[in-house]
Design a binder for these strands. Structure first.
Lengths: 199, 199
DNA sequence: GAATCCCTTGCAACTCGTTGCATAGGTGTG
DNA sequence: CACACCTATGCAACGAGTTGCAAGGGATTC
């Protein structure tokens, strides 16, 4: 996978993944392990078991030339448009079949979540300095993806604010998060919870 | 499900679903059938087999009072934030591990797709008239969800345009779709293709 | 008249992803 | 010392969703 260009073990990768890909792709260690195993089968990776002092052994994975080719191919492959799918949209759409006030509550909660995230992302954005044009290619890509995250949060905030407003609610009371986390917050970030029921 | 408030059969629902939910939730007839069966088990729906002249029998599903309660409960249930997940983001992020020009091509293709969709949605938006405030609750919800679709397309267009621009590409050449489909296009709409490889 | 398509329902098999649990040694806390 | 926790890997089971295929009759087309 695009980030495995630096070798590492399953858990390491999981964490690296979470940290750098976190907000636009989440994966559990389980998934990573399984995919890693599959990729070894396919010849895209090699494994090397490394013993560690005072710790369980770990398996260090490395990308093979074939793997690099696979990756390059994948990158050049046109992907079909992504299917947007959202419980929240369903709730907005179907609000009149239930307690509208309750739905608005749910939306308001989401709104603050998105504000929090946005604040977090904006914080991260600062770390790229004032002139993104001066960054090297890889870092610029990172920056641009982060910009996407920011735009995404703005999209959500705009949308549900619209909805709330149209239903006589004042989204401004769900204030634009005042002071975000001081510098870098270790515990914060894209906190994911378990999935809810669907339909 | 939020739309099954009007009775109908599996295939009918599938089509209704596609038409009204289409762009923010896609479901195949298979899924619908299975979920329908499950909901009958759960007591949220009743079935009635209806014979038709010159056609296979169909099963008409209806929501029970218990089903309405289930739905209302679901609507009021706070859902955890949705996990954004995007191949495209991965490609942008990892473009330097492959042929960047090819990635830009992929992005350009997406850009036109999103422009097309946006055009389509804007067309639909017109049908709601000039004063959305005057709509009844249900129709307004429909309208507001459509607004979300529009915002979503704008998000995508903004994002990938940013990316292209940052990499010396001029997104304007991927022009803002000139003349959209004349009035209502039967064959167009959220056209979905099969999924591509992941990671 | 034959071929083809549509309608309706459904089965089987698969992928992707999640959750819960197990193992097995090492470290830190009360 | 016991308990909880971290690291590291992994199994088993499940749920959601997709694809391919089937059956059986009606309608359309050549």
């Amino acid at each position: 996978m695009a980030l495995r260009e630096k070798p590492g073990s399953g858990l390491e990768l999981t964490r690296r993944f979470e940290k750098s890909f976190g907000f636009f792709w989440h994966a559990t260690h389980q998934q990573i392990y399984r995919i890693l195993a599959r990729m070894v089968d396919a010849g895209d990776l090699t494994v090397e078991v490394v013993g560690q002092a005072g710790r369980p052994d770990k398996k260090v994975y490395r990308v093979t030339p074939a793997g690099e080719r696979t990756l390059a191919d994948w990158l050049a492959t046109p992907a079909p448009m992504e299917q947007f799918r959202s419980d929240l949209a369903v709730k907005m759409r179907g609000a009149s079949y239930g307690d509208r006030a309750a739905v608005l509550d749910v939306l308001r909660a989401h709104l603050v979540d998105h504000h929090v995230r946005l604040g977090h992302y904006l914080q991260l954005e600062k770390e790229y300095g004032t002139d993104p044009g001066s960054l090297d290619d890889q870092t610029r890509d990172q920056y641009l993806v982060l910009r996407g995250g920011i735009r995404l949060e703005e999209f959500w905030i705009g949308w549900v604010s619209d909805y709330l407003r149209a239903h006589g609610d004042d989204p401004a009371t769900t204030a634009p998060a005042p002071a975000p986390t001081p510098a870098s917050s270790p515990t914060s970030g894209p906190d994911d919870m378990t999935q809810g029921e669907i339909r």
